[in-house]
Write a protein that binds this DNA or RNA. Structure first.
Lengths: 218, 218
DNA sequence: CTACAATAAAGTTTCAAAATTTTAAGAAAA
DNA sequence: TTTTCTTAAAATTTTGAAACTTTATTGTAG
């Protein structure tokens, strides 16, 4: 069901494992054995190895020479580190975008926020997070990525995306209480970020980003 | 000569290729064919593939599905991007280190600077950069890494190291004029960074870092 | 002469098995 | 009982060859 039967399977395996990792389908530190996963995707162990090697590249999987792969471990320190670093990158990226972004950027940001806001409102009402988690996670990622998309630095943006995924992995793994009031809160926070960005108010946007993330500190 | 004959060769292949890449033994964009490199290290093509996959994770090698590996391309935009991002990370890391660093940090920073300074002075006098490039590159990396080593963020530090290596790769590839006066200049700049750090003067240290890097802008 | 298709060559990815290393289990000694 | 050594099992890495893709070459039609 989750496995595509297309000719070139590797990208699908990558995407599927990536998705599983950021939605905590594996418990942190769990061993990822190519030989076991092989069966799941109907390919050889080496193909899995390739994919895991690439996922270790982006920090979702930890890899140690001669002792294989694991789903990235989590700890309060790690979560704190990821959150701090994410703030740094997003604040800087947002500042640059506010300076450089054109009308198209504003439009795309509005659009991304609209989608995100819709999904978050639905979850806040219905409360069925499990069903919406992949959808919401994707929309949130897109909103934050769009926010920094006009920063003019491909490197900053690529690094941010990696960190965002690590953040998601760490937070979902922590089994936070994603209750209804949690979503009420982040709806407000995302709105504040959007408003500050469209007002081209750098300090206020930085502050809004910090407010959005500070709950994840130790 | 460059190839170790130990039992477990993979780490050596990784280190050796890493070294070659940051010292521009490959021209930017040059194709890295496992089949060719295989002979060099006396192993199979897949082992090379593994190493290249990991090097692509740290940005030294570019990888495209179904069309293999290349030494990272270079361009004015890319160099500018790397330089800007490096400044961001180093300024932030240095600021945090200045706030958090203890006496041990000061001592290590002094030691790293002492070594670096010695090598740079030698090069400035003798001018034989080619012979000293790996030594100097390693010492400079260590100095900058030590500067941010007390920042308290493993993620920031690891990211900085990757960016430093990409920076080195980009700059050496550009065939800059590493003349004697170039080294005279950076000796002064490194001294300024050290002094500001030991004085615990964040703004001055940030400024010194910027001054050290601004020559690499477009 | 150019554009397009067919073919050949080169390069990349996948595979299953062999070689190596790590981890686990059990036996002997302190 | 605890520790250490030996042995067996499990897992990882490496290999060489097969399958597949891309790129280059050649030939044909417009």
């Amino acid at each position: 069901m989750t496995v595509s039967t297309e000719k070139t399977e590797t990208p699908d395996i990558y995407r599927d494992l990536h998705q599983r990792l950021v939605t905590a389908a594996f418990t942190p530190g769990e061993k990822l054995k190519p030989e076991k996963l092989r069966a799941l995707y109907g390919c050889s162990a080496n193909t899995i190895r390739d994919v895991l090697l690439r996922l270790s590249t982006v920090g979702l999987v930890s890899f140690e020479e001669q002792r294989g792969f694991r789903a990235q471990e989590t700890s309060p320190e790690k979560r704190h580190d990821v959150a701090r670093f994410r703030i740094l990158l997003e604040q800087e990226g947002a500042s640059l975008s506010i300076r450089n972004g054109d009308l198209m950027w504003e439009a795309q940001l509005s659009a991304a926020h609209h989608k995100l806001s819709h999904i978050e409102t639905t979850i806040a009402k219905k409360g069925e997070l499990d069903a919406y988690l992949p959808l919401w996670s994707g929309a949130e990622r897109e909103f934050h990525d769009t926010l920094i998309s006009a920063c003019g630095s491909p490197l900053l943006r690529a690094t941010y995306r990696n960190i965002y995924d690590q953040f998601r992995q760490q937070m979902v793994a922590q089994e936070r209480d994603f209750g209804s009031n949690y979503f009420q809160a982040i709806i407000t926070e995302h709105q504040a970020i959007l408003d500050a960005a469209l007002d081209r108010d750098e300090p206020r946007c930085r502050e809004a980003i910090f407010e959005h993330m500070k709950r994840n500190f130790i």
